[in-house]
Amino acid sequence: MTPDDAPSQLFADLAEIARTLGHAHRLVLLEHIAQGERSVERLAELASLSIANTSQHLQHLRRAGFVVARRDGKRVLYRLGNGPIEPLLASLRAYAAHGRAEMRALAADPAAEGADAMSREELLACLGDNSVTLLDVRPTEEYALGHLPGALNIPLEELARRLAELPRGHEIVAYCRGPYCVLSATAAALLRDQGFRVRRLAAGFPDWKAAGLAVEAADR
């Protein structure tokens, strides 16, 4: 390859990456894998795909280096590959959100404004002085795979009957999977109706992890 060929090869490589990611099912699978290592069967269930279809998409992602696999007995488990994959997913989400009519409508919704989204930087400052209670409203399975340090896990469907576990005198910061996940906004609205002081984290767990910030996982 001559020096003049290098730019063309770079753009060819970028085009190949775009082709690999150019399928909604693959992006959905990557979003679930970003939460933590998952089996093919569980990924198929989460993505509402057949196991055969899921395996096919995972093989495409594997060949491109987006995921790696390991065998655990009869199961094959997938996790994200090496490299800045989580920041790439975060960038894709941010670009997709930019200018979308649905996102503009959400931003203009009074209930969404009332949720008072908190940035990562604000949350880090609050965690430093222990002034908030972190609430992870994702399913318990996802919490076990990884969560923000010190977060209390109450899945959204259990929140209404477990309000007594939350401190009334502390501000609550709810978080979930990210910008396209409505769990934290729904939780914030419920808690506000019950008289809690509550905000929601604008970014979700994958974005927090992609930023290189500390995370915890349940003992296995």
Rank of each mutant, 00 (worst) to 15 (best):
D5T: 03
A6F: 05
S8Q: 12
Q9H: 00
L10E: 08
A12Y: 06
L14I: 00
L14S: 01
A15C: 04
R19V: 00
R19H: 03
L21D: 08
G22E: 10
H23E: 04
A24W: 02
R26Y: 07
L30N: 02
G36R: 09
S39R: 14
S39W: 01
E41T: 00
R42T: 00
R42E: 14
E45I: 09
L46M: 11
L46D: 09
S50Q: 07
S50A: 12
N53H: 11
N53C: 00
L58H: 04
R62Q: 15
R62S: 13
A64Q: 07
A64I: 02
G65A: 05
V68Y: 06
R70F: 01
K74N: 10
K74M: 09
V76S: 12
V76I: 15
L80F: 02
G81W: 10
N82T: 02
G83P: 12
P84W: 10
I85P: 00
I85K: 00
E86H: 01
S91L: 12
R93H: 09
A94R: 15
A96P: 06
A97Y: 02
H98I: 00
H98Q: 05
G99K: 11
A101I: 13
A101L: 15
R104N: 06
R104E: 15
R104T: 10
R104S: 06
A105G: 03
A108S: 10
A111T: 11
A112D: 02
E113W: 03
E113A: 13
E113Y: 01
D116H: 07
A117F: 08
R120V: 06
C126Q: 14
C126M: 14
V132H: 00
T133E: 14
L134D: 07
L135W: 07
R138A: 10
T140V: 14
E141F: 01
Y143K: 06
L145V: 01
G146Y: 12
H147P: 04
P149N: 08
N153C: 15
P155S: 12
P155W: 10
L156V: 05
L159D: 07
A164I: 05
R168D: 06
R168T: 08
G169S: 13
I172A: 01
I172T: 05
Y175H: 14
C176P: 04
G178Y: 11
G178V: 02
C181Q: 07
V182E: 14
A187W: 10
A187G: 10
L190K: 09
R197H: 04
R197F: 00
V198W: 01
R199Q: 05
R199A: 03
L201Q: 07
D207E: 15
V215K: 04
V215P: 01
A218Q: 04
D219A: 11
